[in-house]
Simulated scan of single mutants.
Amino acid sequence: MIRLLSALAALLALALSTPASAYWEYGHETVASIAYRNVTPATRGKIDALLRHQRLLETPTCPARTIEQASVWADCVKQLGPRFSYAYSWHYQNVDVCRPFALKPACKDGNCVSAQIERNAKLLQDPKVPVRERVIALAFLVHFVGDLHQPLHAGDRSDLGGNQALASYGAYAPDKLNLHSIWDGYLAERAISTPPSPVRVYSAAEKATMQAGSVEDWSRESWQVAHDSVYAVANGGDACAPAGTRASLDQATIERLVPVAKLEVERGGLRLARLLDEALGQPRPAR
């Protein structure tokens, strides 16, 4: 048993140190897969047609042949240095969870995830935009919708999206584990892996419920999840109480958070499907 626990700890430490682990791959790919299954056949065909031009990206170490590969492209190209450094701040928006929701101050000059979702959706929709730019817009859009539905990309406590908030995950508590890595990784992975699979065709009623609203509405909702289910849970019920040295998420707490994290992935997938249909497919009926 001791050897087994040691091996497990080593594997978890390796996963934590890998820059493209957990949500950065599994979560984004799952959001993309949900969307791909729930768009119209016409939209699916146009997605595939665009991705056949992925060579125009000239990022051979970061392919985008499928929508799942495209979903992690925006993270992968961070490794290419200054070529894509302009997009670094597009992955998140640090809206303070301890103040009334205010999106504009966190999105100065459009440098935030919600503004870039709207911008790239418009670029994707415009057939006059060069093919290369539309492929980039598709990859960015797929990734950023996933980012918005990771709550710590939508709201925080001036702690770099929870990266400075140390936390333990069950019995696992290495020195550098924090709230961001838990929600990005271990919790997201458990939520997605818990049956039933979120990758399926959803009913019209489910789509109508989860796809409703604007990008700003979705931002507010994810920010609220950050307040209620991330910080309040980590701080003993008060999201804005002074943080201790390390939050502790026990197994009972983790089990309560699994449905919350899973719902965020489902919302992200279905909302991405809506945006892709609006940009590439037939207009949807008025809501």
Rank of each mutant, 00 (worst) to 15 (best):
V233C: 06
L57Y: 01
F84E: 04
E25P: 02
I254A: 09
P151Q: 06
W223Y: 09
L80C: 08
R44H: 11
V258E: 04
L141S: 12
I182W: 10
Y92M: 10
S158T: 01
R200E: 07
E221P: 06
A273T: 05
L275N: 06
Y169T: 02
P19K: 06
P127A: 07
G185P: 11
V145H: 11
A279Q: 02
P100G: 12
H180N: 11
S6Q: 13
L177V: 07
E68C: 04
Q69V: 02
Y186V: 00
L14D: 08
P63V: 04
V260S: 04
A171C: 08
F140D: 03
V142I: 09
L179E: 02
I34C: 07
L50C: 06
A204D: 12
Q69K: 15
Y92L: 11
L123N: 08
P242D: 08
D156G: 15
R190G: 06
P195H: 11
L276N: 08
L11A: 12
A204N: 08
S248K: 13
L5P: 00
L272K: 07
A247M: 09
P60S: 01
R287S: 13
C76N: 04
V230Q: 07
Q69H: 14
Q116F: 01
A205N: 08
G170V: 01
S181D: 14
S21W: 14
V131W: 01
R287A: 14
A102R: 14
K122G: 09
D156H: 09
A165G: 04
A273C: 06
N163Q: 15
